[in-house]
Computed example of a mutant assay.
Amino acid sequence: MARAHIRKRLLGVAAVAALAAGGPLSTGSADAAGAAVPAHAVTGYWQNFDNGATVQKLRDVPDDYDIIAVAFADATGTPGGVDFRLDPAVGYTSEQQFKDDIKAKQAAGKSVIISVGGQNGTVSVADDASADAFAASITGLMDEYGFDGVDIDLENGVNSTYMAKALKAVHDEKSDVVVTMAPQTIDMQSTSTEYFKTALAIKDFLTVVNMQYYNSGSMNGCDGKVYAQGSVDFLTSLACVQLEGGLDPSQVGIGVPASPKGAGSGYVEPSVVGAALDCLAKGTGCGSFKPAKTYPGIRGAMTWSTNWDAAAGNAWSKAVGPHVHGLP
């Protein structure tokens, strides 16, 4: 997730020991029990680190969020392999508390997924062996923690052939897996980009692509005109590229920062997000760009992050959540 703030990675061997001392660590698998993602959904990233935003536990994430992406899994010494460890900074005294919070969110109808990548993520899936390792480690984390799925937020390159293979392997093992993606704007400008090709390759089970409409320069809209970030036209015209490029409307979401502190640039008021969603879904609220048709099935919106949202009094989710859930 591109952003101005560098996350603190604090968990070493000593920290793991301290965490274990705070409570028993679960050794058994945790069964995922999340409900189906609603037709119009709000996604929020939950920070497993302290970067100056409000530190919170999963239980603190508002009910307006339908998908909670735990950020982030970390690369292991095995190419393609990932693992997850709680950062002591978030305040859990045991892994079991975290797993219990996941189950509670699922019981409330939410999906909790593990996000891979971020600004500092170095996971590479570029051959058969790394694709197999990625799939095995994701399904392993789903078993261990009860995650409902995986979010692909790799900002250092995606190989569509092998990432698609890995995600298909996860889906083969977990047929109800929730799969989301958060590419940067440049990664979704054309169906020939690796991110776009990955999305299309897994279209039969892809949940949503929440492109990051921030920390971006000006980009081409689907009408061939150039639009600058920070406007309703930027959101609608770039969403149109994906909608007309082969993704189903239910697989397209608008990703924005929860507050000006959540990203280096590209913050828009929640009302702008609402206007963009209305423009795409109903043809109202548009700026100078108006799509040739409407997409009432548009999935919804995403934000970085639930923590930055909390730091701003949850103003983003209080405004965007009801708007998304009220779409036709």
Rank of each mutant, 00 (worst) to 15 (best):
P328D: 11
A182G: 14
A4S: 15
A133C: 07
T294I: 09
L141T: 07
I67A: 00
S137R: 02
V42D: 00
D233K: 03
G146K: 01
L243R: 02
V209H: 02
R85G: 10
S124K: 14
L206F: 11
A281C: 04
R7T: 06
V158N: 09
L243N: 02
N51P: 04
A2P: 15
T43V: 12
E194Q: 15
Y267G: 09
G34W: 06
G262I: 08
T303V: 09
I114C: 01
K8W: 01
P322T: 08
D204M: 08
L58A: 01
K165I: 03
D187A: 14
A17V: 14
T284R: 01
N210L: 05
G52Y: 11
L25T: 12
A315G: 04
D233L: 03
N307R: 06
L200V: 06
M163A: 00
M211D: 13
A33D: 11
K174E: 10
F147Q: 09
G246C: 08
L154R: 11
L238I: 14
A201K: 11
D66V: 11
S271F: 00
A75N: 15
S94V: 07
D172E: 12
K110H: 15
A18S: 13
L25V: 12
V179N: 04
D66C: 08
Q97C: 06
T139N: 11
S271G: 01
F234L: 05
S250Y: 01
T193H: 04
G230K: 09
I68P: 00
G326D: 08
S265I: 03
S115K: 08
V13T: 14
I114D: 04
E144C: 00
T191K: 12
D87V: 06
C279N: 07
W46F: 11
A263H: 09
G109Y: 05
Y162A: 03
V125W: 05
R85V: 15
S124M: 10
D83T: 15
D87L: 05
P249K: 03
G217Y: 00
A169I: 02
A39F: 07
I114H: 04
M1Y: 12
A201N: 13
G52L: 05
Q47E: 13
A182K: 10
K261N: 15
A228I: 03
L19M: 14
G117H: 05
T43L: 15
S250Q: 00
A166V: 05
K110V: 14
Y92F: 06
A276M: 02
N156E: 10
M219T: 13
M188F: 10
S137C: 01
G91S: 07
A107K: 15
A258F: 04
Y65T: 01
L11E: 14
G274I: 09
G274E: 09
G44Q: 00
V82S: 04
A164P: 00
T191S: 15
F84T: 10
G245C: 08
T161K: 13
S271I: 00
Q242C: 07
P79E: 02
D204Y: 09
D100I: 10
A69S: 15
D278Q: 12
P257A: 05
D66W: 08
N314K: 11
Q119K: 06
I152E: 02
S271W: 01
D187S: 14
A104R: 14
C240L: 11
M188D: 06
G149D: 04
W308D: 10
K57F: 04
L280P: 02
S218M: 09
D187I: 04
A281T: 11
C222Q: 02
S288Q: 13
S111P: 06
T76E: 04
A32S: 15
Q251K: 04
Q184A: 13
A199H: 11
